[in-house]
Write a protein that binds this DNA or RNA. Structure first.
Length: 510
RNA sequence: GCUCGGUUCGUCUAACGGUUAGGACGGGAGAUUCUCAUUCUCCAAAUAAGAGUUCGAUUCUCUUACUGAGUACCA
């Protein structure tokens, strides 16, 4: 295993549906590792399962990575020195390698049909045993190991379906190393003879395609989900069978993402169940249920990435907010944890709130302007931005801005019932009338007005709380929001007086 | 069932065998405030259990329990 060669990693999803956040995290860790080490990040599409291919899935994956800010150096889109990067376009490559293994005795032809194997599985099950296609049974089945060379050739020539299986050695301890998990050892007798290549669609299975492509693409580190750990010994043995041990990549198996509640790993259906997205982007498949995405829910990609990065990895410091560059700087596989991480929707929201605080007012102002326009509310970008600055700290998502600032732009069309009950009493009406007089006397409402009014209230010994609450009810129709004087200043003296009058004249006191 | 992982507050996690076991989310209390939110302060909250190694185990070993993954001509 050469340690000095260039770091090259790949993210190799299968286009069988929307990429879920576990997949995004795998891509992210690969990306961070590549960038941290000045290496290459490659996107390879593993579409060797013609049955499960889903149209649009590949485009979805590419768009998701782009939204996240994960840039690929080589891949299906931009090509590269090892193109093509879609396995279905590399299909002619694999047979040669499968045959190489047959020739050197590491693999063999098998002619059993899927039906025959299913029948065998049932038979074993009936006896309480588990069927494994391995050293114990392969001699009894229809394989090139016990059929004559002529017979094998005849069957192939006449078009019988066949597969090539790996000949798993018997009783050998396979010694493996994983960057995250350390040393792992397993006896090969517990493993079975995996299919490497199938004649039916002339495509390799994952195991063969993966090893061949990683070798050809000079991958130095394989960083993938823990669900692959059980096939690691097979992959080790395949590298050995090909004679590629000296350039074999190093492996790192990432802990899985678990459901927020209950048991098991996070699945695609958990989104509907718990009411949070499990996908980066909205997904509208040609068939099946659509699903919600973080982008459309109003998450900042930086917040999403930050949240995902900390799910299973920790720099060992107390820093929690990381830009992509900071993540790249701090990331190391050694700091990835071994156990599964339960995903927390609350924490995801918290991250977004942190990024909301940091977001640029003018950019959010533009978004608010659009949202207002859709509601038929006309204003300027400048005023929208100003409104954002008043309200931003109490929003978690950009879409919160509209309900929060709506009455900065239009007079309330109704008054919140609870607030009316609590605030709109005869005494307070008198107070509001006094305040109205005071405001009318002012040339305009500014910051100074607030101080003036406060002093006046103190000298007259009036109730500040009651007056301000009534004022707030008049201006916003609800007892919420930032400083009422800041809002009054924002909407202007005339509008403020007008809203006070509306409350005074149209709503009877309780 | 078998194989391979894993196990520190409810959750995400920190602690190169020696810390009052730290931080964050969430929860609770209080302060600030014209309201709500923010912010600030404080509080509760964990080494799965049992053996062993050691002067000393969260940390190393073993057993048990629990848990995750895999067990396809899917990836």
């Amino acid at each position: 295993m050469a340690d000095n060669r260039r770091v090259r990693v790949r993210f190799a999803p299968s286009p069988t549906g929307a990429l879920h956040i576990g997949g995004v995290r795998t891509a992210l860790y690969n990306y961070l590792f590549a960038r941290h080490n000045g290496g290459d990040f490659i996107l390879r599409i593993e579409d060797t399962d013609s049955q499960r291919f889903v149209p649009g899935a590949e485009a979805y994956i590419i768009e998701s990575l782009k939204w996240c800010g994960i840039k690929t150096d080589e891949g299906v889109e931009q090509g590269g020195p090892h193109a093509p990067y879609r396995q279905s376009e590399r299909k002619e490559i694999y047979l040669k390698y499968a045959l190489q293994l047959v020739e050197n005795g590491s693999a063999y032809y098998a002619f059993d049909s899927a039906d025959e194997l299913n029948a065998l599985r049932k038979e074993y099950e009936a006896e309480g045993k588990t069927f494994a296609y391995n050293y114990e049974v392969r001699e009894k089945l229809q394989t090139s190991l016990n059929l004559s060379a002529e017979e094998v050739k005849a069957r192939i020539d006449r078009g019988d379906q066949w597969v090539i299986r790996f000949k798993m050695p018997e009783n050998e301890d396979v010694e493996m190393d994983d960057i995250i998990r350390g040393h792992i050892s397993i006896n090969s007798s517990t493993l079975d003879d995996k299919v490497l290549y199938k004649s039916a669609d002339q495509l390799p299975t994952y195991h063969l395609a993966n090893i061949v492509d990683d070798h050809l693409m000079e991958i130095s580190h394989v960083i993938r989900g823990e669900e692959w750990l059980p096939s690691l010994p097979l992959h080790y043995l395949l590298y050995r069978a090909f004679g590629w041990t000296d350039t074999q990549p190093q492996f790192a198996h990432l802990p899985l993402l678990l459901k927020p509640q209950g048991q098991g790993k996070l699945s695609k259906r958990d989104g509907d169940k718990f009411g949070f997205p499990v996908f980066p982007l909205d997904w509208h498949p040609e068939e099946g249920e659509p699903a919600k995405g973080y982008r459309e829910e109003g998450y900042f990609p930086q917040a999403f990435i930050n949240m995902l990065a900390l799910l299973g990895w920790n720099p060992g410091t107390e820093q929690e907010i990381f830009s992509m560059d900071e993540l790249i700087e701090a990331f190391s596989l050694e700091k990835v944890s071994k156990s599964g991480a339960r995903f927390s929707p609350d924490k995801a929201k918290w991250f977004n709130q942190q990024y909301m605080k940091k977001a640029d007012d003018a950019a959010l102002g533009k978004q608010l302007l659009d949202m207002l326009a859709k509601e038929g509310i006309d204003t300027t970008e400048e005023r929208a931005t100003k409104a954002v600055s008043l309200i931003k700290e109490r929003a978690t998502f950009p879409c919160d801005l509209l309900p929060l600032t709506r009455y900065f732009f239009v007079a309330p069309d109704k008054y919140d019932e609870k607030s009316v009950q609590k605030v709109w009493k005869a005494d307070n009406k008198v107070l509001l009338e006094k305040l109205r007089e005071k405001l009318v006397a002012e040339p305009q409402i500014t910051e100074a007005t607030e101080h003036k009014v406060h002093e006046w209230i103190l000298s007259e010994q009036l109730s500040m709380g009651q007056m301000m609450n009534a004022f707030r009810l008049a201006v916003l129709g609800i007892s919420q929001g930032p400083s009422i004087f800041a809002i009054a200043e924002f909407i202007g003296k005339d509008e403020t007086i007008k809203r006070i009058d509306t409350l005074l004249n149209t709503v009877p006191v309780k």
